[in-house]
Design a protein around this nucleic acid. Sequence first.
DNA 1: CATGCGGCCTGGCAGC
DNA 2: TGCTGCCAGGCCGCAT
Length: 272
Amino acid sequence: MPELPEIETICRGIAPLIIGSIVERVVVRESRLRVAVPLELSTALAGRRVIEVSRRAKYLLIRFDAERTLLVHLGMSGSLRVLPSTAHAERHDHVDLLFTDGKLLRLRDPRRFGALLLGGGEPLLHPALAGLGPEPLSDDFNADVLFARSRGRSLAVKAFLMDQRTVVGVGNIYASEALFLAGIAPDAPAGTISRVRYRRLVVEVRAVLARAIAAGGTTLRDFQNAEGKPGYFAQQLLVYGREGEKCPACRTPIKSARIGGRSSFFCPRCQR
DNA sequence: CATGCGGCCTGGCAGC
DNA sequence: TGCTGCCAGGCCGCAT
């Protein structure tokens, strides 16, 4: 479920709660995530102190002393909470990091599409992160890169935008939103979009992600932040999930279609 | 190489 | 009150 704004919200939420805490032990109730939870997770982290919590793409990076990093991916349905270590686990609470100060970090993931990976002192070198594209809020994400990478490509611009090698963090919701804001039809072949229009797309991707972060992310059904609270960006979504409603710009009914295997929402009049 | 599709899982909801 | 089918914030592997 979570895209960049949701991961960023979780990152900012848990960082002040666990930085400085020391892992006492790790409890794994279910190791069958998309990637099996490493057997050595507990041994690798026990006794280590959390020194930094950051984000790269849709991965949360929890860095420990002595050159260890835990990479957390939440898949479609994952969430993280910081709770008192006495909190009893419910269904789908798969992994707990118990800290010596009486807190725990809990991973819940009903669909088990998430993953916990162990990295070293340079987590960005981990194979899961190595091939990823630029961060959308960095200068490395720009129209020139989009234009160059898309020449000769026939896939829909929405699928191109959601490819994490093009730019990271943009998922199904924000891709629809950014393309609407940029006035670009989601099924237009990526290779047919001009440099000028990619310039606009870059601006709108950044804008929608920044606004979503400011609102604490989008909760459609079950996204929750580190405190268990929802995000409030859903009410600001202009097209996603609004099939049949009037376009906020021209009042034409919003359409929906499957593009790249994902449901997509757009205004047939504003987006060309 | 690029593209599109099915599969991975569980839960929730609409429709019968 | 069931059931059944469909859909869901992501990503990977396979066939074409």
